[in-house]
């Protein structure tokens, strides 16, 4: 596990006496797609929010590239090289697609404090290159507020890649998309991750997506990890089958 980009050990979180996440440990390596699955209320989102800085764990260690990131704010974690997408897309609706990506590029370069220069003149080619990779270049000048949902997800991916992350945290990246689009988006993600050697941790409801795209899968139920392994191993795990009540295809 020495090449683990993200290392999680003994993560705990309780809300008013209810254990939401209990003793969760796992690791993600560079270039690996790790899926975190589990039924509703299993603690996926809580788990995610402890990794990205939104929530503070009660106990446990979260190391990114060897550095403990527990207690850091989301923006500080991003600065270390962690990109994020949201379950419900969060983009800047009144800005154009390109400007959304440029915003992340400016932020990464620490050039947002300028009061008198014109925004948008720098990082144009970088932004366009990212948009090209996610297939959004032709819509670069459109306002984000008018985009279709699937396109917004792509824009988010481009934004998430802007700080050259070594780790991508994607919470339900395909939620709200049509089934066809889902696989396409995750294929794209997987190819980008592999090309750039990025570690990806994602949660997902669509089992087609999970089993076709993940390198490894870990399964959370009632706050605890009940299984982990290759898609094949997980598919055949009786505990997992029990949890999903045969809903696994």
């Amino acid at each position: 596990m020495s090449n683990a980009v993200l290392l999680v050990e003994g993560l705990h979180k309780a809300f008013g006496g209810v254990q939401a996440v209990a003793d969760v440990s796992f690791a993600v390596s560079a270039g690996e797609m790790l899926a975190l699955i589990g039924p509703n209320g299993a603690g996926k989102s809580t788990c995610f929010n402890m990794l990205n800085g939104q929530l503070k764990p009660d106990a446990g260690v979260v190391r990114f590239e060897g550095r403990d990131i527990v207690g850091l704010r989301p923006r500080a974690i991003w600065r270390l090289g962690v990109g994020r997408t949201f379950q419900i897309t969060a983009t800047f609706a009144s800005l154009s697609v390109r400007e959304n990506v440029q915003m992340a590029l400016y932020s990464h370069a620490g050039r947002l404090r300028s009061l008198l220069t014109r925004f948008g003149t720098a990082f144009r080619t970088d932004a366009d290159a990212l948009l090209n990779q996610v297939g959004m270049l032709d819509q670069a000048d459109r306002t984000c507020g008018v985009l279709a949902y699937g396109d917004l997800k792509r824009v988010e991916l481009a934004i998430a890649l802007a700080n050259q992350p070594r780790l991508l945290l994607m919470d339900e990246p395909t939620a709200g998309m049509a089934p066809k689009e889902r696989v396409a988006l995750m294929e794209l993600t997987a190819s980008l991750a592999r090309a750039r050697n990025i570690a990806v941790l994602f949660t997902e409801h669509d089992m087609d997506v999970v089993f076709s795209q993940a390198d490894r899968i870990i399964v959370l139920d009632r706050g605890e990890l009940i299984a982990g392994g290759t898609p094949e191993e997980v598919r055949n795990n009786p505990d997992v089958r029990a949890v999903y009540l045969g809903s696994v295809h």
Partner: peptide, 16 residues
């Protein structure tokens, strides 16, 4: 403007 549109996203791309 970005912060008005989405404080969540602003924070997630390192903006205080």
């Amino acid at each position: 403007r970005a912060g008005r549109d989405s404080p969540l996203r602003a924070e997630a791309i390192g903006i205080d």
